[in-house]
Design a protein around this nucleic acid. Structure first.
Length: 685
DNA sequence: AAGGAGGGTTTTTTT
DNA sequence: AACCCTCCTT
């Protein structure tokens, strides 16, 4: 985050080296270097929050009021007051936020690697706990984390096994129902009780199959990480006691987006000492669809009686004009803590620009960006284009490429969605955990090695029936003439080959990346690419992906003290899509950012283009129909999303919409978003 | 078993 | 318009 805020930027003062004179003066008796941060950098309420060290604390922080800063300074205060750094846990919403906060702490603490606060996301925290303790639940200590694609395969298979057709229940629908159940702690055995119609019953039995197959594969999905941790705490007091003892102080950022399982985990962790500090803004709750519950932040005082509340309403990020729009817009929501942000700097009035169609919108926005960058020397990284859905950025990308302005598409699953990467990850997952059936099925005939779908299907049926592994039923399948000699031979070869690579990956001292390189060579993945794509540059691009994978693994090896394939896989599946791979920091730092409103949470940019403000897009069509059906607050979440978008802009905000838009190959007329009129009108007028 | 053609379907947001 | 699935030919 670039910090050119007019009020003391984060590291405005030089950081004295460890043990310097300043350190001795502030904290004479401590072996720890005190933080360089001075509380004078903070305004009164911020300071009040940062020095409240005991007992539950709720910081209601509006957008741009410096909540991350408060959390960091508070950690520094805790350490200054003698709390052992490693006994502090700070939970952030994304890995990126964790990384940034860790870097700031390193600056403040002067890099003392032996004791530092644990800063991580809920999911990473849970992985750490589960890696140590999961055997208690009957899972193997080695498990793989299934990403979205793996989950879909598992769901598809579960539905096929119970003979449910796509028409009755689609894999994606099953997954979202499973997720909703897991989010509130409903286990497969109990799901039927929560089903209220036929589809619900189908989903419940799908859920049972799905979970069975994950367990048999030694796999967990994202929700399991939370659910299993909560279960662990509930069922095993000794485990809970051990984890409780690890932390004396717990802080949680973006608390408005905690879901039920996360709340339970935290409540259990802090029970002995109640030293919990949560920071959030109910107006920025945008993950309701993922089980986030605003009620946790609204009811914090009921959960933790005696909690102190600090309100931060001074916005130091945006101009008065931007804040005026934001305030007016969000006032249309009900069920919120009424608060009004106060801005402190002036700037141009935000522009609202209509365009005839989405193509012109992209051209217009990019033309302006190009002018800013080329003629006015605005650094590209000061500019962001924010949008609601992932189909929107394409046109902007094309335009940016055309005028040669550097850009990065943040978040979009582009890298991990590529077939080649998914294949390679499946190989690695399988080799790390040979029980992983979903990955095995993906790679068993990729590249093609004469093991056809029909044979695999028959083998699988037999394997399931006999409760054995797919390899072990080959002789029986041969005898029953279910597969041919030739197929059996191919499978044998494949099995031997994989066995060899398993051993290699398992042997400490053998380079992981070199093993991967050899693997790709041995299975002739390159040849597969040559066959699949006939144009030379496509082939080149696809092979480039292979190199990127190898490079990613090599980089992991270099930065990890004790490289381990399973750890690499954990990190890549949790680090949200693009992080580990092709994460070219130096390039990213001087590029225009393109991202969804959801990914933009917690970030800020001097110039923001908020595009596609149309009915059906923002608010999204789905939320409009949801509003009519069952969820009266669906539109309110969209409104908060728009609010988040507006408040990302520090100085210049430009809002745009297209008057017509292409959909499914047809052009439709659009209506300007209701939010546009709302934000320009005071409630009640 | 593999590859290609044609037809039907699709769109929210992500750790 | 793009993607996936199914069916058909080799």
């Amino acid at each position: 985050m670039s910090s050119s805020t007019p009020y003391s930027p984060f590291l405005s003062t030089p950081v004295p080296k460890f043990g310097g004179p300043a350190a001795a003066a502030v904290n004479p008796g401590s072996s720890l270097r005190p933080p360089s941060a001075s509380l004078n950098d903070l305004n009164a309420p911020q300071r009040d929050a940062a020095i409240t060290l005991d007992g539950p604390l709720l910081v209601l922080a509006g957008a741009g009021t410096g909540k991350t800063r408060v959390i960091t300074y508070r950690m520094a205060e805790l350490i200054r007051n003698g709390v052992e750094p490693s006994k502090i846990l700070s939970v952030t919403f994304t890995n990126k936020a964790a990384k940034e906060m860790a870097e700031r702490m390193s600056h403040m603490l002067g890099r003392r690697p032996n004791s530092r606060p644990m800063i991580s996301t809920f999911h990473s925290l849970c992985v750490r706990i589960l890696r140590d303790e999961i055997e208690a639940l009957g899972y193997p200590p080695r498990f793989v984390i299934y990403d979205r694609g793996d989950q879909e395969s598992a769901a598809r298979k579960a539905l096929r096994d119970i003979k449910v057709t796509d028409a009755a229940l689609k894999p994606a629908d099953l997954l979202s129902q499973i997720s909703r159940w897991k989010m509130v702690g409903v286990l497969p055995e109990l799901a039927t009780e929560y089903a209220d119609d036929d589809r619900g019953y189908l989903a419940a039995s799908g859920y049972r199959r799905y979970q069975q197959s994950l367990r048999a594969s030694g796999a967990v999905d994202f929700d399991d990480l939370l659910l299993l941790t909560a279960q662990l705490f509930e069922q095993f007091p000794d485990v809970l006691a051990r984890q409780q003892a690890r932390f004396e102080q717990v802080q949680i950022d973006e608390y408005q987006d905690t879901n039920e399982m996360q709340f339970q985990i935290v409540a259990a962790l802090v029970k002995p000492h109640r030293n919990i500090c949560v920071v959030g803004d109910d107006d920025q709750s945008i993950y309701g669809w993922r089980g986030a519950e605003v009620k946790h932040i609204l009811n914090f005082q009921q959960h933790f009686p005696g909690a102190k509340i600090v309100r931060l309403q001074d916005n130091y990020r945006c101009t008065t004009e931007i804040i005026r729009l934001a305030n007016q817009l969000v006032k249309h929501n009900h069920g919120r803590h009424d608060k009004t942000l106060v801005a402190h700097k002036d700037g141009p009035t935000p522009a609202i620009k209509p365009f005839p169609d989405e193509q012109t919108e992209a051209e217009g926005v990019v033309r302006e960006i190009n002018y800013l960058v080329k003629e006015l020397n605005v650094p590209p990284q000061d500019i962001a284009i924010l949008f609601r859905t992932n189909e929107q950025p394409r046109l902007f990308e094309t335009e940016l490429r055309r005028v040669r302005v550097p850009y990065v598409l943040v978040g979009g699953q582009s890298f991990f969605d590529r077939k080649e990467v998914r294949d390679i990850m499946a190989y690695l997952k399988f080799l790390s955990n040979p029980r992983d059936e979903v990955s095995l099925l993906r790679i068993i005939n990729t590249p093609t090695r004469g093991i056809g779908d029909a044979s695999v299907e028959r083998l699988l049926n037999r394997a399931v029936k006999m409760g054995r592994k797919i390899w072990d039923v080959i002789p029986d399948a041969l005898a029953g003439k279910e597969i041919t000699q030739k197929t059996a031979r191919s499978i044998e070869l494949f099995r031997e080959q994989m066995g060899e690579f398993q051993r290699r990956f398992d042997t400490p001292g053998i380079s992981l990346s070199e093993t991967l390189q050899k693997l790709l060579h041995d299975i002739d993945y390159e040849g597969e690419i040559q066959k699949q794509y006939n144009s030379a540059d496509q082939q080149l691009a696809r092979s480039g992906v292979l190199d990127e994978c190898i490079t990613a693994l090599r980089e992991y090896e270099q930065r990890s003290p004790k490289p381990d394939l399973a750890e690499f896989l954990d990190q890549t599946s949790l680090s949200g899509n693009n992080r580990e791979f092709g994460d070219d920091d130096s390039f990213e730092q001087s590029a225009v950012k393109l991202m969804t409103l959801h990914s933009a949470k917690g970030l800020e940019f001097p110039r923001v283009y908020l595009v596609g403000l149309e009915e059906g897009l923002l608010p999204h069509k789905r939320s409009i129909t949801d509003e009519l059906e069952n969820n009266p607050s669906a539109i309110e979440e969209e409104r908060r999303l728009a609010y988040v978008g507006i408040t990302r802009a520090k100085d210049v905000l430009t809002i745009s919409y297209a008057q017509t838009r292409m959909k499914w190959g047809k052009r439709y007329k659009t209506k300007p978003s209701r939010f546009l009129t709302e934000m320009q009108r005071v409630v009640g007028e």
